[in-house]
Amino acid sequence: MPHFTMDYSANLDRTVDFDALCRVVHAEVLKTGLFEVGAVRVRAIRCEAYAIADLLAENAFIDMSFRIGEGRSEDDKRRTGEAIFQAVTKHLDTLFQTPHFALTLEIREIDPALSWKKNAIHPRLRKKNS
């Protein structure tokens, strides 16, 4: 962990560089110092079918979900969420200049008793950094 997912309305394809946005989020996650680089996953998922608000074709959304393992304080989670939300908001500034865009972020803690992981990236990066 952490896994950061952005579901977005397909009509944003022509205005948002999602590769760049994923890298913005990735950098902010690492800046917190709370997560190992080998654990960070950021992805954007295009939603073809959606119905937003009053159904205007211009309406668009990005819904961000950040799933993290347990062990961080409420303050750490809040500061992390605020930093990510601020960086994404800044990156998408032009979208907020129209009355057709909605951005959301939710952080969820994963129950370790119900989460299984196997990661071959961690050993490589840990060895490289030692």
Rank of each mutant, 00 (worst) to 15 (best):
P123Y: 01
R124S: 14
D54A: 14
A60P: 07
Y50Q: 07
V40P: 12
A49C: 11
S130C: 06
K90D: 08
F96V: 03
F85A: 14
T5C: 13
A53E: 03
H122P: 07
R78S: 13
P123W: 01
W116N: 13
L105Y: 02
A20Y: 04
I110C: 08
P112S: 05
L12N: 10
I121A: 13
F18K: 11
A27N: 13
P99H: 13
F101R: 04
L21V: 02
L56G: 12
I110N: 08
E109I: 07
E106A: 09
S115M: 12
I68N: 01
D75N: 13
H91A: 15
P2A: 09
M6G: 10
P123K: 05
T104S: 14
L34W: 02
K31H: 13
I52H: 01
K31G: 09
V88T: 06
A113W: 04
I45S: 03
K77R: 15
V37T: 15
T15N: 15
P123D: 00
N59I: 00
V16G: 04
A27P: 02
A49N: 11
I52Y: 06
G71E: 01
A53I: 07
E74W: 03
P2N: 04
E48A: 14
H100N: 13
P2E: 01
F96A: 07
R14C: 12
L21G: 06
L103Y: 02
I107P: 01
G81C: 13
D75G: 10
Q86P: 01
H3I: 06
A60C: 05
L12M: 08
A20N: 06
N129Y: 11
V37Y: 07
G81V: 02
T89K: 10
Y50A: 12
P2G: 07
I62Y: 03
K90C: 04
L30A: 13
A102P: 06
M64E: 03
T89V: 08
L95I: 00
S9Y: 04
L56M: 12
L125F: 11
I62F: 06
L34R: 09
H91L: 00
Y50D: 09
L95H: 03
Q97L: 12
A44H: 12
N59T: 02
F85M: 13
P112H: 02
V40D: 03
R46I: 05
L92Y: 07
K77D: 11
N11V: 14
R46M: 00
G69L: 09
E58V: 00
R43L: 13
M64R: 10
L105G: 01
L125D: 09
E28S: 10
M6E: 11
V42D: 01
L12V: 06
K90T: 14
E58T: 10
R46C: 05
